[in-house]
Amino acid sequence: MAEASDYELLDRYAGGDEPAFEELVRRHQKTIYDLAYRMLDNHADAADMAQATFVQAFLHHTTFRRESSFRTWLFQIGLNLCRNAIRDRARQQHENVEDLPLAAPHDTFAVTAAAQARDRLGSAIRTLPERQREALLLRIYHDRAFAEIGTIMSCSEGTAKANYHHAVSKLRRVLVADEGTRELS
């Protein structure tokens, strides 16, 4: 028997079918967790955000117009939640800077700088502008077509492509500079 489509499972879930709910979550949990982890860079936040993505999707499943795939819709919800979490985190860090003691027992900035030097590519990806980073993650790790990336990011296919190309160019410059530094030292 052919595997049930996401839409069919969603209909069954709406009719109170618990196994359909479980099947839908299992089908997409790794994808959404992967996206959340790549956006938020740690397991705890990624797990929370992946859970919140499914909760939002199931709570509002009646508003899903089915103009895209269920997975695209999950990507949209997940990406929005991650964006908000990153903004909240930035706001919080900004507020906490004022609470930092003037002479920290361990030099936080030196530790961060050392960690970043070990993972130049990682920090280069992290510091990409939001839209470029999202396009890069969706394209490289989730293999989405640019048209779908546009749908997920609420922009045109052309804008999604441009964001991706800018991201790759920027990373290339960082890596070239990095190679140059390594050759010099």
């Binding site: 709910f21 479980e22 979550v25 299992r26 949990q29 967790y33 797990a47 992946a50 859970q51 919140a52 499914f54 909760v55 199931f58 709570l59």
Partner: peptide, 9 residues
């Protein structure tokens, strides 16, 4: 994980 989602739901 699905149970976690159910819990949140």
């Amino acid at each position: 994980f699905p149970e976690q989602v159910r819990h949140g739901l």
